[in-house]
Design a protein around this nucleic acid. Sequence first.
DNA 1: TTGTAGGCGTTATCAT
DNA 2: ATGATAACGCCTACAA
Lengths: 323, 323
Amino acid sequence: MDVANAAGVSKITASRAISNPSVVTEATRRKVHEAAARIGYVQNFVAGSLKSKRSRLIACVVPTIASASVFLPAVRAMTQAFERLGYHVMLSQRGYGLEQESEQIETVLARRPDGIVLTGTFASAAARRRLKASGLPVMEMWDMARSPIDMLVGFSHEAAGREAAAYLHGKGRRRIAMVSATEPRSAAREAGFVAELQRLGLSAPLIHSVAPPTRLGHGRQGLAALLQSDPRIDAVFCTTDMVALGVILEAQSRGLQVPGQLAVMGFGDMDFAADANPPLTTIHVDNEQLGERAAVLMVEALDGRRSKRVLDMGFQIVERASA
Amino acid sequence: MDVANAAGVSKITASRAISNPSVVTEATRRKVHEAAARIGYVQNFVAGSLKSKRSRLIACVVPTIASASVFLPAVRAMTQAFERLGYHVMLSQRGYGLEQESEQIETVLARRPDGIVLTGTFASAAARRRLKASGLPVMEMWDMARSPIDMLVGFSHEAAGREAAAYLHGKGRRRIAMVSATEPRSAAREAGFVAELQRLGLSAPLIHSVAPPTRLGHGRQGLAALLQSDPRIDAVFCTTDMVALGVILEAQSRGLQVPGQLAVMGFGDMDFAADANPPLTTIHVDNEQLGERAAVLMVEALDGRRSKRVLDMGFQIVERASA
DNA sequence: TTGTAGGCGTTATCAT
DNA sequence: ATGATAACGCCTACAA
């Protein structure tokens, strides 16, 4: 360190003045910081982490960041919380496929992150084993269903599906359909939805399934397909709000009244839901809290004081006008 | 390296077999890789970058990842391209404010990224100076307007605004308004829009401005406000497709026909634009290409073979039914 | 509170 | 094609 020379102290004192100022005198701290500013010193976390074995880097794997994915607000909140707590987030996109997953994990581990966050991701069994074996704290976000690898902050998609079914049934709907997506969490909502309808004595619902990421067009095509199978359906539960918006658009363009003739329910309570026409009844998840808690739990684990390992953040049905 | 022992070669040979296999014999390569697999060796990029001064890490600063930001597809494409080329992307959110920008930059630089990508970001003058002084390759994405710090791949928002004005004028519209946003690129589109209308001999347009990130509700409120100022407006150019969708919804709920009585034009050609009702006339940017080129140019610069420093990717007006 | 010694795991450099 | 040596810049451990 030339800062040390510039400030007239030893290397280690300069290091402490910058990384751990509480252990040096205020005068030393000032002297070193002034020297650092003078010579334009830039700290090197790379060198630091080599010896300390702490990179202050969190690897976060998401399916994709493009399009209005319903979990992105949680990732945003989490990233902000991590930055506030002194960590950086390295984002990797996994895609909805599983190819090269192991290879991807190896290169991520080679960066020596302090922890790993998996979002909306069902890692393959091999990948899960690999992550467990790494010994790193692993946080899974946005799901509740299975036995977690390590820590988990999420909610039950299956319960969300069940409550949606119960809600629509409670509104007097009896020919209830769903537009689902070929993606694990959507499948979990679908499973809960189907189970609850069965419990309520209804016959198996019509389901139209689309490939993620979900789009407005999926809702339009989905309703068209459902109506073709059964013109008398009176409610549709949608895998995302964007799909629900598409269902509403399609219904309106066919002269079907929402919610009069067709109740439409979304999922995600995205920022357009309340402003849709009619305002969208949907399922709300507190993504701010969810992301924040995920980050805080991870940092607690890194600091050696693990509190809860699994946190169910729940969800709420937001009743608006569409269902 | 214990891999070296396990394989019965020297440390440096093991290192080469893994990081630079072309310089060792195939037999050595195999021997080392087998040993690595056997003992569960995980490469350590941290140690490698300390000596080699190459981290294979790209820092990317974006305003925010939440909500369907119109530049996210470009970031996605860029991230994928970087990963394909052997780099990881560290994402930092800047927020739309400017607080702590310098501090943020320092911690990013402390990670020793090989390059920095700024997306949709007008860094402050101090930050721009700091980045320039760092000597790192800097890529600015999604804009064309000013003198770049270093490299740039984008398009002219000002030109987009001008062409939107010309397009609506060409469709016979004469009372043309805009819903804009208080954000630099939106402001650039607005400036071009206003300038072109003036050039065409129209009076200064009504403009309603909203705070980003833009939402559907902004479009609804925006049209309401515009109509209150002037009930006779016959066209609205919107700063994003989501806002345009809101304007359409609001128009329809007021019994205004789109495009008959009101032409609505968006920006971004997001994945719902073609499926809107009516399908949205908008401005398309080739985000896939844009992100890909940004990554490729950056990697070329890192490899010491800089080709172009500035690339104008242009845009196209996509004529659909709404305007 | 400050300092000394040494090493983290890899790669650059120079030799063989 | 492979090896020996040293160094990257910081932090841990221990000492003063």
